[in-house]
Write a protein that binds this DNA or RNA. Structure first.
Lengths: 355, 355
DNA sequence: CTGAAAGCGCTTACAG
DNA sequence: CTGAAAGCGCTTACAG
């Protein structure tokens, strides 16, 4: 057992009041630092609290105030560096403002996301930040509003109105990446994502239910269209996780003629593409060029270092938290979509298209 | 404003009871699925709940039961892949058991850790998991026991008795890494850590206040001692963050004679060593060998791929959570130190010592 | 400045 | 199986 006091019943305001010989209300006022208390009484109460090892019960306080000073966050997977960094941003802003954060992973599944939201709302979080697994299945997101708690969408939008969101301009990010490739003479460019997609192959016009991916595809296609590339959607590979990013990569490389450049929709995909290309004996960028979304530190130390689309991930999280707290303080602000810009960081994984 | 109901007062058990025409106790029993309720009454209550969009208040429930079904976690930095993965393990076990987790970063500072613990305890978490910033400053850890909440140490031990801990066998891990280097003929081997250390240079016998680092240093030194290496502690570099890992690496490489191998105490350090070595025009492993602690995916795709000490990080987190929940259920189990083994994964960053 | 009372939204004995 | 009452640990008017 623990070396400390065997932890009998924890001291409460009532206990302090008894010892300090004041009323509960007065003890609470001194302890909670609100209302008026004379110095003498305050000293007595604080001494009693010290003596009894008093520790306020935040839940009891929340019940009265209707504020839990807690914000809930649901992300796809905290193990993913993208979310880990965003979470840091959220966390820092929250802590700074005196808020705690409850984290739940959804595994990018709407069922888990629904359950997570329920748990958070039941636990009376003051606000919730979610990276929605789907922009189409959003009925449950309404629960936050119904429960009177502000909701901020992180990194992805959702269909319908009435949502605050903090995202990145994925469309122009994809455009920039695609243009960079076109500039180097590439004509057969692939876009690889692991977002779940019901069809075996992508069809233009079909809805992609993750707004970040949908926007990237839009930027990708419009750039290729404008360049006069025929049928550019044939090289769009969604749902690469199911078949395996390595398998998908290999297919792309074995087309006739093969793809000469690949845009990876996140750093995990890029890693897999990178190692597949190399283990197949091909060189980057001589045989195939590669651009990755996200800029984790390792992308700078590979051979060659990767050209990437850098996103302000930490800022994304921080901004989402700021927006959420702003809502908590004032419910009457208008819905807003905050959109951050990305930056194409040219390193050495993009080269001239092979002849 | 939100598109949903303007969110007037949320429905409570009392509201449901009124509508269903039963007592609050009965409504609560049906809603909370405890006690006995006739089917007819249950149906009526559930219908009323549906109609009023009822959502239980978990805080109110916690106040009565004394259980919040929440566990608190304080780690150095969730942005660090090590903690992100451990957090995933904690999260998965917690969710599975119906627990939520509140996460707070300490930035490896004991002041923040103290504050974090207070917040968690005040919020009535049922248990707390902490990766203590220091094994020496641990008075505040006793607060958990004093408040009657189980505490499990993650990845690092703390001085004193009465702690549950889940760690890795760092001493033998360091031994294995060092032996691997000796086997390749290295005699001047450095160990680089970013753990804060008060002295400019490490002195044998001085306390290192992070148990993981202390254990690695022990394993490192005893292996070199056994190999008859003279004064092996001269190549121990702690607190590398302050001076910069690149600066420290450069110094090591410019000693006369220079160090021929480096053990990096985590993957972030390894990344920095790796790029410094290369930007200085040296080759790995021809000029200098490198072994990194931790095995993030990128270490397999660098040129050359890195030899690493793989730690079961996810398992570490999961085990800590399991232990915490076990404590929550039964306070009377004995303290335990769970120690996981690591594995040396030989890739290509270790070569023969240059002549 | 201080206190008595009621209340936050549940659960828990205790009766019936 | 159902209900009336008390209680969890605080805060909030309302008096004085």
């Amino acid at each position: 057992m623990s070396p400390q006091h065997p932890a009998r019943r924890a001291a409460t305001v009532a206990d302090i009041a008894r010892v300090a010989k004041v009323s509960k209300a007065t003890a609470a006022r001194a302890l909670g630092e609100y209302g008026q208390v004379s110095q003498a009484v305050r000293d007595r109460v604080l001494a009693a609290a010290e003596e009894l090892d008093y520790r306020p019960n935040a839940l009891a306080k929340s019940m009265n105030t209707g504020r839990s000073n807690t914000i809930g966050v649901v992300v796809g997977d905290i193990e993913n560096p993208f979310f880990a960094v965003a979470m840091r941003g959220i966390s820092d802003v929250a802590s700074e403002a005196g808020y705690s954060v409850i984290l739940i992973n959804s595994d990018e599944t709407v069922e888990a996301e629904e359950a997570a939201l329920d748990v958070l709302l039941d636990n009376q979080v003051d606000a919730v930040i979610v990276a929605p697994a789907s922009s189409a299945h959003v009925e449950h997101l309404g629960n936050a509003a119904r429960a009177g708690r502000p909701l901020v969408l992180l990194d992805r939008r959702a269909n319908g109105e009435g949502y605050d969101s903090v995202t990145v301009d994925n469309r122009s990010a994809a455009r920039a990446a695609t243009e960079e490739l076109l500039r180097h003479g590439h004509r057969r460019i692939a876009f690889v994502s692991t977002h779940e997609y019901p069809q075996p192959t992508y069809q233009r016009g079909h809805e992609i239910t993750m707004s970040s991916v949908a926007d990237r595809v839009t930027g990708f296609l419009e750039t290729l269209d404008a360049a006069g590339i025929d049928d550019p959607e044939r090289y769009i590979q969604l749902d690469a996780r199911r078949r395996g990013v390595d398998v998908v990569t290999r297919e792309l490389l074995q087309e006739d003629p093969p793809v000469t450049a690949i845009i990876a929709s996140d750093s995990l995909i890029a890693m897999s593409v990178f190692s597949t290309v190399r283990s197949d004996g091909l060189r980057i960028p001589d045989d195939v060029s590669l651009i990755a979304f996200d800029n984790p530190a390792w992308t700078a130390i590979t051979t060659p270092p990767l050209t990437v689309v850098e996103q302000p991930i930490y800022e994304l999280g921080a901004a989402a938290a700021r927006r959420a707290l702003q809502r908590v303080r004032d419910e009457r602000v208008a819905d807003a979509a905050l959109v951050f810009e990305t930056r194409l960081l040219s390193r050495e994984s993009v080269g001239a298209a092979p002849a």
